[in-house]
Design a protein around this nucleic acid. Structure first.
Length: 400
RNA sequence: GCGUCGGUGGCAGAGUGGUCAAAUGCAUCGGACUGUAAAUCCGACGACCGAUGGUCUACGGGGGUUCAAAUCCCUCCCGGCGCACCA
């Protein structure tokens, strides 16, 4: 059905070994998957992604990178854009009910998806399918048939449903539908293997159940490990602890530097291509700072390039280690004798005059020219100055 | 539909008539220190001003009682749970 690529299937045992191990949380059924990969048969590798947000972060990228590994072996990559399922809402990662997402919102999220995916996958060899193209046409009767594949017990025992039910919270029937739909996707595209984050385990297994129910071969599933956010909590946009793959080199580098030290090993393994031995040697140095800098450089290199990574590193060292003034400092021109507080609020660097007052009192406003602190909250800008506000905000003010 | 419990700052969650711009935790921000924007410690965390004080806005919306309300009453909106409906 998808035999449109002529590349030969690579069955190199070492590569297969790596696919089955690096960053992998669990494989179901491992023996079966291994056999399939070694057979030389071109497999349909499925990955579903719901466009619930505009950005892909490096945590979600783990599974995409795994997908790339399959792609490199020559398998068919079937990328399911969950434009339909996104509207229904995946209950996997939440302990509470999820809202419906509007189709406008989804379209908006989808806008830059491919560009982002292109940073990881070879898009020319990816088959993109939108699951609305079959899910939105299902009749109620067909839906009922699909629903027949699951028992209420199976669903209700799913961990996060069970927790909510036990707590006396409600679980909507609609949420039961989600795994069914994802499973139906697998049936539709004749998936041999489906990838997903470990949080997707239930939905992935649903694919097996649905396939079996309709008399098809069950897909194998491979789940990747979950990456923690920069602060050690689950990486989630709403927590603000994400590193997006389209972040600027500078931003990306800085965010990596801000991860907790304990997170280093998992970041190295899950987010870089470095060999295990090399990672071990980097970490054995017992120098978290250099290790982190190396990590930051690797990650920026993957999503941008090594030149950008070097540049970001230089900028970082200069700004934070040597405390130099960055070159691309923001410049504004204002009338003479304006209140500095007003200028900063206008520039949206601070949100209110009260905040300025706090910064001034706490010594957070640095006059870079005289290397002193501005503590007068009624400071007037009478001559051009360069200032640093807090740790990361720099501003050069010119006067008319 | 009936009953009942609830709706508090970014989140979680105290407070049940004055001492509440609202405990505490998390997140966030500033400073010190450092090895980095890590860790730790100290501090801040509604806004505005003629500023060790004052004013305004805020505890789902509106109205009321009171010298005084996040706290009491009425009403509306929203949510949970139970019951009823399904028999």
């Amino acid at each position: 059905m998808f035999r449109i690529f002529s590349q030969k299937i690579d069955t190199n045992p070492k590569k297969i070994q790596k696919i089955l191990e690096r960053g992998v949380e669990d494989i179901f059924v491992k023996e079966s998957l291994e056999k399939k990969l070694k057979s030389g048969r071109r497999l349909n590798i499925k990955l579903g992604f719901d466009p619930t947000g505009p950005n892909i972060h490096i945590g979600r990228a783990i599974v995409l990178r795994k997908l790339k590994a399959f792609q490199d072996l020559g398998h068919n990559i079937i990328f399911i854009v969950g434009d339909f399922t996104a509207q229904i809402g995946d209950p996997s990662d939440k302990l509470e009910k999820r809202p419906f997402l509007s189709s406008e919102k989804i379209a908006e999220n989808l806008k830059n998806y491919k560009e982002q995916l292109g940073k990881i996958l070879d898009l020319s060899k990816v088959k993109f399918l939108y699951n609305s193209s079959w899910l939105s046409n299902l009749t109620l009767k067909e839906t009922a048939e699909l629903a027949e594949s699951f028992t209420v017990g199976q669903m209700a025992n799913r961990r996060n449903f069970k927790e909510r039910i036990d707590r006396g919270e409600e679980v909507s029937l609609r949420e039961f539908l989600y795994p069914l739909m994802q499973g139906y996707d697998s049936l539709k595209v004749e998936a041999d293997v489906e990838l997903g984050g470990f949080d997707q385990l239930f939905n992935l297994k649903a694919g097996r159940i649905v396939q079996k129910h309709f008399g098809k071969k069950e897909q194998d599933i491979l789940t990747t490990k979950m990456l923690e956010g920069t602060d050690g909590r689950k990486m989630s946009t709403s927590w603000g602890n994400v590193i997006n793959i389209i972040d600027s080199p500078k931003e990306m580098y800085g965010k990596v530097m801000s991860i907790k030290d304990e997170l280093l090993p998992q970041y190295f393994i899950l987010c870089t291509d470095l060999e295990k031995l090399e990672i071990d040697s980097i970490l054995s140095g017992n120098d978290p700072r250099s290790a982190k800098m190396r990590l930051a450089k690797e990650i920026v290199s993957i999503y941008h390039n090594s030149a950008a990574a070097r540049e970001a590193e230089e900028g970082f060292v200069n700004t934070f280690s040597k405390k130099e003034i960055p070159e691309d400092i923001k410049v504004v021109t204002v009338e003479k004798n304006r209140l500095l507080s007003d200028v900063l609020v206008d520039e949206k660097i601070l949100s209110s005059k009260t905040e300025f007052k706090r910064f001034a009192e706490e010594g957070g406003i640095h006059n870079l020219g005289s290397d002193s602190k501005i503590t007068d909250f009624k400071y007037l800008v009478s001559e051009p100055i360069k200032i640093r506000i807090g740790k990361k905000n720099f501003l050069e003010i010119k006067v008319i």
